[in-house]
Structure formats: C-alpha cells, structure tokens
Amino acid sequence: MSGWRGASARFIRWLRVVWSGLRAACGDDAYERYLVHFSREHPGRPPASRREFYRESEQRKWSGVSRCC
C-alpha cells in the first residue's frame, strides 16, 4: 500500500516538473517570473499588470530577429 502511495507521489511530482517545464518552455509563466524579480529588485513599487507586461514583451520580441529560415 505504502509502495503504491510512494509511487503515486513520485508520479505527481514528475507531472509537476513536466507541467512547469512546459509552461516555462512556451513563456506561460513569464509574468510570474517578472513579479518575483520585480518584488526582489524594486520592493514597494507597483509592478506592471499582467496585461501591460504581456503587451510590452510581445512588442519587444517582434522588434528583432526571432525567427529564421
């Protein structure tokens, strides 16, 4: 019984890693990362909203070469 429980806990942990990797790989968690960074570097100042952050990052991404042949 405990073996089964341990295996399922390991499986859930593995799923979490896969899920967070997938989110990171496509930039889904970029805003959360930004909040962590911002609260560490500029404590007390209001960070950009999710919407503002997303708009700005999109604009920046497509101002340079980000796709190839």
Binding site: V17, S20, G21, R23, A24, A25, G27, R33, S57
Partner: peptide
C-alpha cells in the same frame, strides 16, 4: 547558484 527548471523569459 541554481536556475530552477521553471524559469523562462
């Protein structure tokens, strides 16, 4: 020291 798996731009 360590960059976690779940970090991205």
């Amino acid at each position: 020291t360590d960059v976690p798996e779940g970090s991205s731009p």
